[in-house]
Design a protein around this nucleic acid. Sequence first.
DNA 1: AATGCGGGGAC
DNA 2: GTCCCAGCATT
Length: 344
Amino acid sequence: MASFSSTLLSWHETIQRELPWKDNPNVFHIWLSEIILQQTRVEQGIPYFLKFRNRFKTVKELAECSDEELMKLWEGLGYYSRARNLHKAAKLIHDSGGNFPDTYEGLKALPGIGPYTAAAIGSFAYGLPVPVVDGNVNRVISRIFGIREGIDTKEGKALIEKTVEQVFDKEKPAAFNQAIMDFGALFCKPKNSDCNSCVFNDDCYAFQNEMVSELPLKVKKIKKVNRSLNFAVISYRGKILIKKRIGKDIWRHLHDFYELTADGGINEEDFSAIDYKLDGIQGPIKHVLTHQNLSITFHNYEAQKLILKNGTSYFLVERENLRKFAFPKAFDWYFDKNSIYLKY
DNA sequence: AATGCGGGGAC
DNA sequence: GTCCCAGCATT
C-alpha cells in the first residue's frame, strides 16, 4: 500500500482550490487568513480577508489602526476576541521590530495563536514540520484510523495528535497540511461524504465498519441559556445615545444602546439631566448564539433634554453616522427597520 | 476540565 | 431544529 501521504497528495492533485491568501503568499497574509478562518467557513471568511488585505499592506498599518476601525472591519464575522487579539499581536510584532516569529513556540506565544494556528502559519509560511489539527483533521483521522475516543477529551486529542504525527510528511509539511484540510473540507465531509469513490476507503476504519456517520465522536454538549436583552434607543436632537461594550459579556468592544434591566426603565441617575418620552417599541426579535438564545427588544425614546454625566461612557452620535461604529449583527434588524444605513 | 465566545450554511 | 466550521483564552 502506498503511504498515507502519497495517497493524500495524489488526491490533492485532482482538486484545486483558489484562495486569495495564496495569491501572494507571505506570513502577514497567512496569519491574517488563519485568524479570520478560526471556527469560520472559508466562504464566510474570504470577503473579510479581502477587506483586510486591501486596508492593511503591512503589520505596521494594522498595529496603528484604531480599535474602532478594526472592530468595524470585523463587524458581522463573530468571535470578536479574534480581532482584539489580532490587534494586540500586530502591536507586539511591530514593537519588536516588525518581524514575525519564525518558530512554532514563538508563533504560539502571540495572542490569538494557539496550537492549530501556530502549526498552520509555521508550515505554510516557513515550511516548519508541524502538522495541523483542526476540525477537518479530526474528522479525517478519526474516521480513517478509527479513533473512537471523544475528540473533545484529553485522551482523544492525544490519540489524534499521535496518529497525525505518524502519517505526517516531514518532507512536505505545507503540502500535507493543505491537502488533509482540503480533503476534510471537500471530500471527507461531516455529512454526505462520497465514501465509495474515496482513495482511502479500502483502509478506512469508519467506512469498513459503517461508522462514518458516528465519527468523529463528540462527548460534550453545550448548554444554551435563554436571555432577554432590552435596549433604549434614546434620540436627542438627531443624535442617538450609544456606548461601547466593555464588560465580560458577548460582543465585547462592539457598541450598543442604553441597556435596560429586565423590567426597568431608564435610570435617570445615569444622566446629569434627562427628559424623555417613549416613542414606540420594536421587537422582540430572536437571535441565536452558540451559548445563548437571545430575545432582543428595542425601546425608542425621544429626549427633549439630555445632559451627559462627566466621565460617562455614553456618547451621542449623529443618526447618519451611527453605522460608522461596529454593532452586533443582531442589530441589523433594527437598523434596516428604521432605515439607518452607512452612507459612503 | 469546563466554559464562553458569533454567525452562517448544510441538512 | 441539529451539527459544524482553517480554535483560543480564561477560569
